[in-house]
Amino acid sequence: MAERLEVRKTYKLYMGGQFVRSESGRSYAAEGFNVPRASRKDLRDSVRAARAAFPGWSARTAMNRGQILYRIAEMLEGRRAQFLSLLGGGRPAGRQVDAAIATWVWYAGLTDKVAQLAGTVNPVAGPYFNFTIPEPTGVVGMVAPEEPPLLGLVARLAPALCGGNAVVALASEPLPLAALTLAEVLATGDLPPGVVNLLSGRRAELLPWLASHMDVNALDAGACTDPELAAVEEAAAGNLKRVVRQREVQPSPQAVTALMEFKTVWHPIGV
């Protein structure tokens, strides 16, 4: 009997809820595969998709967002074996996948607590009711670190989504497969199309456009090198996008509020 012939997968970008090749038709070799090399236009299209998805996603109730983040954890759990093999197997891979699942679960339980932890009622000196609530910043750009390719991305993605942002993320350049496969998890996790857009390609080529894009509100530059950060901060001045540098830390409410705005509302009290 002939040996079973494997069906190979073509890895694609994840934009606007769809799996697509780069419009440029380019690819680069990584982890033994031809991986799409996203272009400036792919990046711009991703920002448009994220912007279009933002109003709906940010208007979801916190409870609903929590449900979806939890379902992402469920989908990842179901593909645990696949990710283990993608990440090379063994204990470190196991720890990384398990931490990624735990991260989704942790933030799934945080969505409806952010406003209670970070919001305030302010006792102003006058007859006014005054409160401050966190709101999502909008479209967030982010750069995944080269390693760990799955957890490094999830640790940034989950808090951004927890706060209600839409995201355009650049996958690890040498190790993009985990991120591109995570897109399949997101797509089956009930996440609305466009809320997360994942691009593989050359960071040096894409990052300047992400940093200078006028419709990106914030950038998580935690994985950037110091020279990259300087260039990002300079380019970000064009529309004063927030540049945050999420460190590799345990999940925290601060990781969520770093990508949020605070809105204060006043109303008089009277009869």
């Binding site: 302010n122 006014y128 204060t264 006043w266 109303h267 008089p268």
Partner: peptide
């Protein structure tokens, strides 16, 4: 956002 008022400020109010 000021609702039914405007230009109010207070040290406790971000």
């Amino acid at each position: 956002v000021w609702a039914n008022t405007y230009n109010r400020f207070d040290p406790t109010s971000p």
